[in-house]
Design a protein around this nucleic acid. Structure first.
Lengths: 210, 210
DNA sequence: TAGATTGTTAATCGATTAACAATC
DNA sequence: TAGATTGTTAATCGATTAACAATC
């Protein structure tokens, strides 16, 4: 009814809560209070209560939160029980690393195909997938398609690849190229700009020495 | 004199400005106004002027900003002319990708050594570096040391590795492990939590379907 | 000079934190 | 019931945007 919009900042904290709760549960903790979470996570207790309340009253006055219930709720909110197919475009260093890393599949994000334009890597195997020529992108999508498109190309190819992924019906783009791709409203983009991250690091190494 | 603290949000936009200006310069543009930048980058023009003014008056009324001067100033602020050594700990998928990617060295961040605990990868070559046993970390640091420590280990090893890197005199940590490491005030941490990023992506795939 | 665009102050907006009544 | 802790409102803080005088 009161379709309150969830602030981006809250959404970005959800994985942190989830990760923390997984740890608590593993240690056998049953209940947790916002003040204990505050202490452990370095977040303000009011903020934690407010964040969690965006999605409903998961706690109980005088008690706190039940660890596994809360973990379950956050998992549900994040959609972690889903089963998603990822197409990885670009089989360079990053593309290969993502395809080879088994952790994503464990979270329900399964690399379904990987593509490149370089004849030297086409046909080679990375993480159990054979690198296909990029021209077969649309054809490959006929067998199951993809939910997520992962862009691991150079900046120069990123927009064109994004356009093709969107045309395929991809609903979300995970962009590792150092370029801000433009997509329709209905598609969302999650950027991982490693170069930007490195530059921030560089700034900090030099801060004050201006 | 008035040592105004620079907001984190501003610092995170600097790489974006830099990237944009590099593109402009490459296209031969001489001058640029905040309103044109606004249009191209999707940021508010007031915000751009305010951001740039944090560091000094780089523009000129009635004219705008000189592209290469502004690019140079931002490069200087970010410390991009530096020459930094990186120690990469963890030669799994991500560690290998970072060591193998030549782009960082081009920006002055040079992978100087890579370490692992797995006998199966120790001694193998990645990106021109031989993977060393982690126990040789301190010994290796005697030859030149490291400015940046890159953590590419599992979560369980992250804190211990961070402690050792800090003891070595590393001034900044680039953390790819899904764990928030604690470090002294004088050291800064730049996190790249790929799992968190994936979870945000998952949330967006499911938003509204709660 | 007239036009353009910055630098900067003031207004707005949104996010964080504090406070406390509700309630388990 | 008394104590604890949430859910929620109010206060604060900081960041973004608008407006405009300064000035090239």
């Amino acid at each position: 009814m009161e379709e309150m919009r969830i602030p981006e900042a809250v959404i970005r904290r959800l994985p942190k809560y989830y990760r923390y709760l997984v740890g608590l549960e593993r240690r056998g903790e049953i209940r947790i209070s916002s003040s204990a979470m505050s202490r452990d996570m370095g977040l303000n207790a009011s903020q934690i209560r407010r964040d969690l309340n965006c999605f409903g009253g998961f706690g109980q006055q005088g008690y706190g939160y039940n660890v596994s219930k809360l973990k379950g709720e956050i998992a549900r909110i994040l959609g972690l029980s889903g089963d998603y197919r990822m197409f990885i475009v670009g089989a360079g260093n990053i593309g290969q690393a993502l395809a080879g890393y088994g952790g994503f599949a464990r979270e329900g994000f399964c690399p379904a195909a990987i593509f490149d334009v370089d004849p030297a890597v086409i046909g080679t195997k990375v993480g159990g997938l054979v690198v296909r020529p990029l021209e077969q992108l649309e054809e490959t999508a006929k067998n199951g398609g993809a939910d997520v498109g992962v862009i691991c190309t150079p900046a120069s190819a990123a927009q064109q690849v994004a356009d093709r992924l969107v045309a395929l019906g991809v609903r979300d783009i995970w962009n590792f190229a150092p370029f801000d791709v433009q997509v329709p409203e209905s598609v969302s983009v999650e950027n991982v700009h490693l170069n930007d991250s490195l530059f921030v690091l560089s700034y900090r190494l030099n801060a004050g020495e201006q």
